[in-house]
Amino acid sequence: MFDLEKLKQTGSYLGRAARMMVGMPDYGTYVRHMQENHPDKPFMSYEEFFRNRIDARYGGGSASPVRCC
């Protein structure tokens, strides 16, 4: 039969996978992870998180930036 909850879970999973493939960070997942696994530590704001992920992906802040051209 048709299981709406399973369809929602699958859609959520596919959405996260697609965002990861194009390098779009998932702030909500990060916040949940921090709350569940590191409740004693502060977590980054959305802006800090986004900058952190961009720097990690493209080498921001390093002495020799990664460039394609």
Rank of each mutant, 00 (worst) to 15 (best):
M1D: 15
F2G: 10
D3I: 09
D3K: 12
D3M: 07
L4I: 12
L4P: 08
E5L: 12
E5V: 11
E5K: 15
K6I: 04
K6T: 12
K6H: 12
K8P: 00
K8T: 06
Q9A: 13
Q9W: 02
Q9R: 12
T10H: 03
T10E: 12
T10C: 02
T10V: 01
G11P: 04
G11A: 05
G11N: 07
S12D: 09
S12Y: 06
S12R: 06
Y13K: 13
L14P: 01
L14N: 12
G15W: 01
G15I: 00
G15D: 07
G15R: 11
G15S: 11
A17W: 01
A18Q: 07
A18V: 01
A18D: 08
A18K: 10
R19V: 00
M20D: 11
M21L: 11
V22L: 04
M24K: 06
M24V: 13
P25Y: 08
P25Q: 08
P25E: 05
P25D: 08
D26Y: 10
Y27K: 06
G28H: 11
T29A: 14
Y30M: 12
V31P: 04
V31N: 08
R32P: 03
H33R: 12
M34R: 13
Q35N: 05
E36H: 07
E36A: 14
N37R: 14
N37Q: 15
N37V: 03
N37Y: 09
N37G: 02
H38K: 13
H38A: 09
H38F: 11
P39C: 02
D40P: 00
D40C: 00
K41S: 04
K41G: 01
P42I: 00
F43A: 02
F43T: 01
F43I: 00
M44F: 11
M44I: 00
S45D: 05
Y46L: 12
E47F: 08
E47Y: 05
E48P: 01
E48F: 05
E48C: 06
F49S: 10
F50P: 00
R51V: 05
R51P: 02
N52F: 12
N52A: 14
N52S: 14
R53F: 08
R53H: 04
R53W: 04
I54S: 05
I54H: 10
D55N: 15
A56Q: 15
A56C: 04
R57M: 13
G59S: 08
G59K: 10
G60V: 03
G60L: 01
G61N: 03
G61Q: 07
G61I: 03
S62I: 02
S62D: 04
S62F: 04
S62T: 14
S62A: 04
A63G: 00
A63D: 12
A63K: 09
S64W: 09
S64T: 10
S64H: 10
P65L: 14
P65F: 07
V66A: 15
V66P: 02
C69T: 11
C69V: 13
C69M: 10
